[in-house]
Design a protein around this nucleic acid. Sequence first.
DNA 1: CCTATTCTGTAACGATCGATACATAATTAT
DNA 2: ATAATTATGTATCGATCGTTACAGAATAGG
Lengths: 203, 203
Amino acid sequence: MSERGRPRSFDRASALRRAMVVFWAKGYEGSSLSDLTAAMGINSPSLYAAFGSKEALFLEAIDLYTRSEGSDIWSTLEEAPTARLAIEGFLTQTAKAYSQTDRPQGCLIALGALHQDSSQGLICQDLRRRRAENHTALERRLQRAVAEGELAENFDCKSAATFFATVQHGMSIQARDGATHSALMATVNGAMAAWTAMAGPHA
Amino acid sequence: MSERGRPRSFDRASALRRAMVVFWAKGYEGSSLSDLTAAMGINSPSLYAAFGSKEALFLEAIDLYTRSEGSDIWSTLEEAPTARLAIEGFLTQTAKAYSQTDRPQGCLIALGALHQDSSQGLICQDLRRRRAENHTALERRLQRAVAEGELAENFDCKSAATFFATVQHGMSIQARDGATHSALMATVNGAMAAWTAMAGPHA
DNA sequence: CCTATTCTGTAACGATCGATACATAATTAT
DNA sequence: ATAATTATGTATCGATCGTTACAGAATAGG
């Protein structure tokens, strides 16, 4: 049974969400246990009992981030009727999400732990894997468009996916520098201008 | 006179260069005094006597980085005969520089200190200012092309500068993920496809 | 009731952080 | 030679890092 013993006095899901925001704003290295416990409203023994370690807490926070913050962006990619609308929607959702002022700007997965180090090998590895998955999702969506005849057979899906993924990563840094929604949309429009040239005049 | 007293037993410029590489690889937060003194081959009192503090050392390292590593990229922007070649050269130089394997990948100014914090306010502010200057340099080059008649009067220089600066920032993260030179060139080609669409068929 | 189990707050652990005090060594000025 | 000045190495500073020992509080099963 898991109902024995003294019951937890805080909401685990809510505490995780607050921890996610701290990591999002300060990165893995920059978030101290003091920062985390203060934001979560608990003491460190409770944190360790519930989540295991700072590293494990971060990994859970990343998972929550992917499920909550990333869903709008990536569902747009899959559900849009054409590849062009998929990419445009993907970038537009990104511009919208990254410029919200009620949360940290930019992407936790892109900015959370860029400097690999001995102590944070797992963290960097996990984030890198997720960034690679995002790249793959973009490439798959473009490959689908080729299979459906929307894009030419010789369309370079991998290169195009690399380009759009890179643009999104750049938007994270841009957002961290305080870029407004319209500034981010300038980048989106630039990227979509590239689409026109890459996909040919018929697309 | 500055020649009195016991002479310094290490080469200040060489030590600064080594410190720059440490900051470049690990970021400001991730670089400890132990990391720095070990790489510089000196003890901490010598570091403080020569550079003042970790923060001051970082600011000097950033300045050295701008002068040494950034010159190729930004001189290309200014010296290319047309705006198209300027942007293409700017991005191509970036792809080349970011994929060198004998130094850390990506840009120190873009990745050195993304998470603003109370303790590193000056650091973030300095990097942000330098990123803004880069954006301005791009915008100015495009404005020059408008003045020279290469680009149409209604060409949106600011938005285009934002787009290309964002692409370059994204390339830093891409490079940190181990992107090869050809992968970075895929992004460059994508961005230049955007140029074709933005500048019109006559460019 | 009692026991077992789990969580909570206090308090502290060893390690490392950035930064220095201090005595000594090495140089110039007089 | 002596004084003045500056750098070096050792050794350490207080603060903070991530983490945990421990005793008491709160629940369930018996």
